[in-house]
Design a protein around this nucleic acid. Structure first.
Lengths: 225, 225
DNA sequence: AATTAATCTTAAGTTTTGCTGAATTTTTAC
DNA sequence: GTAAAAATTCAGCAAAACTTAAGATTAATT
């Protein structure tokens, strides 16, 4: 569950972020309206917490733009103004809920639960597509030409690390850390073995894995755009 | 648009009725819980404004009864208590919104607009259907080919968490949090045991639970079935 | 308050799956 | 052509997940 906060008050933004993170949400935040808008449009957020009173762009303009883009994102408005006209206007513009400042964190928490419960299951495609391959970060699967490559945990993690670092050579040490965490390690040969089996599996599906060897340095995925 | 008010304070009920009538709604009202319940069940109300603290019947019992009857009626809770637990419980019991007393009429007005907006867009999300299985979020039951699988609370919660997150692998830690809350935990083995019994129960009904294991990561429900 | 019923947790045994490290072969760079 | 690096293979081992049942909690009932 990813949440975006657009709020110019640094202290409020900070405390919201900390509080929501503690509740298990993934939280991004910004104090700038136009930056916020582009984040909302590009990212896969389930929920936007939006302050109506922003310095640069108006909050309700952001809301309009998001709805125009037909984004499936719930919007909770924060408003310092306590005028009914404003609220109504905001809600009719496509907000799903609102809170007037000041508010208690508990209050916000409950409203979030409510919104999430309501929300249609947002099928946010956190997938990385490279050539004929598609890596599903939620299902932890590598698809090759539509078929599941059936990777083991370590095989998958290797691919995930390299796919998410497309265009960079990743050394065996980094890969080891990615697999085992920073307090443990995986032998270089083990990594080679995993890559070998992974390559074999995708070859069996008819495609070569786009992970290449950079002799003496590590492995990488060519970035083609 | 017909609205039903169940609220024992005569003065509040009166003023609400007048205010909402002036806004163009058709309003019925009662101060008695059981009368209110039968009205809600028989009449064609779009919205119920329900006080949780009623003298005769408990407000949350009314809510449960309405949801059990599968009535398509939005419920806005009025609560004097300001405790988060209560709110959460109320919302999870099937309420659509809530207000704590005292509140301004403007506040209520906006929430009504919000609920109505939702109503027009919303599909009924009280049930999640996956294959031969149907999860009733209001009744807290898993149905398999029409028959109740008779899950215990924790078994149900596991299924609920995975069904509402279909298409995502959920790690044991998240599941633990879902069962026990963020300040407590459930051992991984306990989760395994619950899943085991759940699978057994549905197998006894003739169907395999569509919850699969993603070794090394957690459990998931495949998206399209 | 005591008893019972229901559910949850723990632990141990079992099964399944995946990882590792050594031996071998292949590739690459000089 | 040679040496170093990488790829491959596989058997033995280790870890993860499943199952079951018994003991511990909790909730319900008398």
């Amino acid at each position: 569950m990813k949440i975006l906060i657009i709020e110019d008050s640094t202290s409020l933004r900070r405390s919201l972020k900390i509080g929501l993170s503690n509740l298990g949400f993934t939280v991004d935040d910004t104090g700038d309206g136009s930056e916020g808008l582009s984040m909302a449009l590009s990212g896969s957020y389930s929920l936007l917490i939006l302050d109506l009173m922003l310095p640069s762009v108006d909050g309700s303009s952001i809301l309009k733009a998001i709805r125009k883009a037909n984004k499936d994102i719930r919007v909770l408005i924060l408003s310092a103004r306590d005028l009914t006209e404003d609220k109504i206007e905001g809600l009719l513009n496509g907000a799903d809920d609102y809170l007037t400042k000041p508010f208690s964190f508990d209050e916000l928490h409950v409203r979030l639960l409510c919104l999430m419960r309501r929300g249609s299951l947002n099928i946010d495609n956190s997938k990385i597509i490279i050539g004929d391959f598609s890596l599903d970060l939620h299902l932890k699967q590598l698809h090759c030409n539509g078929k599941d490559a059936n990777l083991t945990p370590n095989e998958y993690k290797l691919v995930e690390c390299l796919f998410t670092n497309q265009g960079k050579v990743i050394c065996p040490e980094k890969l080891s850390e990615y697999l085992a965490g920073q307090y443990d390690a995986v032998a270089k040969n083990s990594i080679e073995a995993h890559l070998s089996t992974t390559r074999k599996k995708t070859r069996a599906l008819g495609y070569d894995l786009p992970i290449k060897t950079k002799r003496g340095f590590g492995y990488f995925v060519e970035s083609k755009l």
